[in-house]
C-alpha cells in the first residue's frame, strides 16, 4: 500500500466524500470481479458490490494500515457474497467426510495448463456450489480452511474434504474438455 493510498484511507476514515469517491473508483473493478465470481448472476453481483462498499465505508475506521487494504476489501466482498447467497438460496454446505474420494497428489494429466482463463472459469462454474465456493475461497482468494469453515458455517474437515473433491471434480472436467478439444482437431 503506497503513501497516497494511506492518505486517501485516512481521509475516508474522517468521512471525506471526495476520498470515498476516489477509493471507490480505484478498487471497484477488483471488487466487482470478486463479486461476479461468487454470485450466479450480474444483478446479484451488483447487489453484493453495493452492500460491500457500504460495509467498507462504515467500518473503515477499524482498518489498520499495517494490513493489505486489497485483501481486506476482498474478504468483505466474499463474506457479503456468502451472506447474499445464503439469504437467497438457503444452501447447506454439509457433506459427509467419509464420502471423500482419494485425491491425486499430482495432476499428471496436465503437463502444462494450456487452458484459457475463460475455459478455466467455465470449468470452475461447473463445480457443485459447495465445492466451488470452497475452491474459489481457498485457491483464488487465499482464505484459510479455518476462515472458510467460519464463513460457511461448516466443520474444518468438511472444508478440507470439499476442497479435495473440488480439485478432483475440476480435474475430471478439464480432462474431458481437453479430450473433446483433441477429438475436434
Amino acid at each position: 500500500m503506497d503513501a497516497a493510498d494511506i492518505e486517501i484511507i485516512e481521509l475516508c476514515k474522517k468521512g471525506d466524500p471526495n476520498a470515498q469517491r476516489k477509493i471507490y473508483a480505484r478498487y471497484s473493478p477488483l471488487m466487482f470481479a470478486v463479486a461476479l465470481r461468487y454470485t450466479n448472476a450480474r444483478p446479484d453481483a451488483e447487489d453484493v458490490l453495493q452492500e460491500s462498499w457500504i460495509k467498507v465505508f462504515r467500518h473503515i475506521k477499524s482498518f489498520s494500515e499495517h494490513n493489505s487494504f486489497e485483501g481486506w476489501l476482498r474478504r468483505i466482498v466474499v463474506n457479503t457474497a456468502i451472506t447474499h447467497y445464503r439469504r437467497n438460496q438457503k444452501h447447506q454446505f454439509q457433506l459427509e467426510i467419509s464420502e471423500v474420494h482419494a485425491t491425486p497428489n499430482d495432476f499428471e494429466a496436465f503437463k502444462d495448463l494450456d487452458f484459457t482463463k475463460e475455459e478455466l472459469a467455465q470449468a470452475i462454474e461447473r463445480l457443485p456450489k459447495g465445492y466451488g465456493m470452497v475452491f474459489k475461497m481457498y485457491v483464488i482468494d487465499g482464505f484459510k480452511h479455518k476462515e472458510i469453515a467460519e464463513q460457511l458455517g461448516i466443520d474444518l474437515n468438511t472444508s478440507k474434504s470439499q476442497l479435495s473433491r473440488a480439485r478432483k471434480y475440476l480435474q475430471d472436467v478439464l480432462e474431458s474438455m481437453s479430450r473433446r478439444a483433441n477429438e475436434e482437431h
Binding site: 471497484s28 470478486v34 465470481r37 458490490l49 495448463l113 478455466l120 472459469a121 485457491v139 483464488i140 487465499g142
Partner: peptide, 12 residues
C-alpha cells in the same frame, strides 16, 4: 489457477 484470477477486474 490463482494467477489467472487474482488480478481480475471488471468495471461495475
Amino acid at each position: 489457477i490463482q494467477a489467472q484470477f487474482a488480478n481480475d477486474v471488471v468495471n461495475p
